[in-house]
Design a protein around this nucleic acid. Structure first.
Lengths: 131, 131
DNA sequence: ATAGCTGCAAAATGTTTGCGCGAAA
DNA sequence: TTTCGCGCAAACATTTTGCAGCTAT
């Protein structure tokens, strides 16, 4: 990946935020420092930054657009049904879920994003003894 | 809400499914019994059915379109990162989360959809002693 | 009779993409 | 100097909406 002023600024701006902006909100913020930057460039760079794990998508149910964050480790979010505020969850909150999920349906949880992702029983069997 | 053949059929079709179809997928299924029904009508009726709690939205991260379900109680979903299959979670898996979330950030969880929804500390304070 | 629902098509929204130019390697 | 990223605008996908006519009450 080739360096670009735009990508550096997008990442720097997102890293300074404690909020979870949409691409459009971030575009407005970034334009303060680089007025010529286009929304398409913000989308393209966010995509690359997500691919390289420097940025995470925060997919909020009920919000039509995707939100992004660059701070800290992967974590779940608590969304207030009154004011819409987004609070970061801690890993401790989920400690026992993985164990229960595994015990009940044999599903191994890898990831506590907005949804629980992992590998289902069938796919695990396929992995251990491949065709 | 006034009766309509279209809405009845949409709900009946969705209730027969163990999958979590998008509006477009459901439109295809419903058209088998009522070829003239339009996609707009499917969207409009799904909206009403969600409002009246007969149908729930299943917002799957990574899928661009919203999915719907009509069976059982509200529940979370486990999404396999290998094959994309959607498995229904049980309430027991989440028993301790509510307690931990409450203890750590004073947030009361109401709902274990795809994301955790509830009321944040500030809104609870506002509720108890209104302006 | 009339409120509310329909099908249709256009609009709205959020995101992606093709293009020709300019910047990084 | 070649490759890749840019800005721009058009395309795209999903969902919503305005309208004129039909249906349930």
């Amino acid at each position: 990946m080739k360096y670009s002023k735009q990508r550096e600024l997008i990442l720097k701006t997102l890293r300074q935020l404690d909020t979870h902006p949409t691409a459009e909100e971030l575009h407005v913020l970034v334009k303060r420092n680089l007025p010529s930057i286009s929304l398409g460039t913000v989308y393209r760079n966010l995509g690359q930054l997500v691919d390289s794990k420097l940025v995470r998508k925060v997919e909020v149910a009920g919000s039509s657009s995707v939100r992004y964050e660059a701070k800290g480790e992967e974590h779940c979010h608590l969304i207030c049904t009154e004011c819409g505020s987004i609070i970061d969850a801690t890993p401790q909150m989920f400690e026992t879920i993985d164990v229960k999920v595994k015990a009940e349906v044999g599903f191994t949880v890898n990831n506590h994003g907005i949804i629980l992702q992992g590998i289902c029983k069938e796919c695990q069997a396929k992995r251990k003894k491949p065709s």
